[in-house]
Nucleic acid binder design. Structure first.
Length: 204
DNA sequence: CATGGGATTGACT
DNA sequence: GTCAATCCCATGC
C-alpha cells in the first residue's frame, strides 16, 4: 500500500499540517511479534523554527538535528519525562519544522491499543485510546527509538487519505500546552470528532 | 557538572 | 480546579 512521499513533507509546514488531517498513521513493530496498529489523523499542530514554541527555535543542537534534516522523517521526543510525542519533519532540509500528530481515530489493532493503554484491563472507550499526543504513541507502541526513521518505509508510516476522508471539515485553533507564541492559530482538528483532544475548538 | 523547564496525562480535591 | 511523575537536553558556570 502507498505511503506519502518525501515531497509531500517538503512544503510549508502549515499546508502539511492541514493536509495530514485524514491521513493514516500506522506502526508495524520490528520483528512482527506485535500486530500492526493504525489510526486516522484527526488533530495536528504546526511548529516552525521562526517561532519560539518550536524546539528548533534555538538552532541546530543534537536534539534538533532531525528537525533541520530531510523532510518525511519522524521526530520523536520525550515530553515531561513520561510521554513520547510523534512529529513529521517538514519543509526543505535546513529549515527546522514539524507537524505534531495530536490525535487519531483508531483503525487497526484496536485490541492491542487497549492492552497497551490499559494493561490492567480497565474498560476504555475507543475514543480514549488515541485522543492526545502521548496517548497515541502509547497505543501504537511508538518510542524514542523511532526518532529519525523515515515515514514512507520505516516502522512508522503515513498513508494518504482514503475515500471517506477526502474532504474533511477542518477547524483551526491555537496550540495546546505551550507557553510561547500561544496566539498562533496553528492547530487543526476534524470537526465533531470524538477522538480530538480537549479542549476541542468547537467547545472553546 | 548542576540546574531548570517542558508540544502531557491521570488522579485527586 | 490542582498537582506530581520523570527524563532528556539546553544552558550556564
Amino acid at each position: 500500500m502507498r505511503t506519502l512521499p518525501s515531497d509531500f513533507y517538503a512544503r510549508p509546514v502549515l499546508e502539511v499540517a492541514r493536509e495530514l488531517i485524514g491521513c493514516v498513521v500506522e506502526h508495524r513493530p520490528a520483528g512482527g511479534g506485535e500486530p500492526l496498529t493504525s489510526g486516522v489523523i484527526v488533530e495536528t499542530e504546526a511548529y516552525h523554527d521562526s517561532e519560539p514554541a518550536c524546539h528548533a527555535f534555538v538552532g541546530l543542537t543534537p536534539r534538533t538535528r532531525i528537525l533541520f534534516g530531510p523532510p518525511g522523517r519522524a521526530y520523536v521526543y520525550r515530553s515531561y519525562g513520561i510521554h513520547a510525542l510523534l512529529n513529521a519533519v517538514c519543509e526543505p532540509e535546513g529549515v527546522g519544522a514539524a507537524v505534531l500528530i495530536r490525535a487519531l481515530q483508531p483503525l487497526a489493532g484496536i485490541e492491542a491499543m487497549r492492552a497497551r493503554r490499559s494493561p490492567l484491563g480497565v474498560a476504555m472507550r475507543d475514543e480514549e485510546l488515541c485522543s492526545g499526543p502521548g496517548k497515541l504513541t502509547q497505543a501504537l507502541g511508538i518510542e524514542l527509538t523511532e526518532n529519525g526513521g523515515d515515514l514512507y518505509n520505516g516502522p512508522v508510516r503515513i498513508r494518504p487519505r482514503e475515500s471517506a476522508w477526502l474532504e474533511p471539515t477542518i477547524l483551526t485553533g491555537t496550540r495546546i500546552g505551550i507557553t510561547k507564541a500561544v496566539e498562533l492559530p496553528w492547530r487543526f482538528c476534524v470537526a465533531d470528532n470524538r477522538n480530538v483532544s480537549r479542549p476541542r475548538p468547537s467547545e472553546k
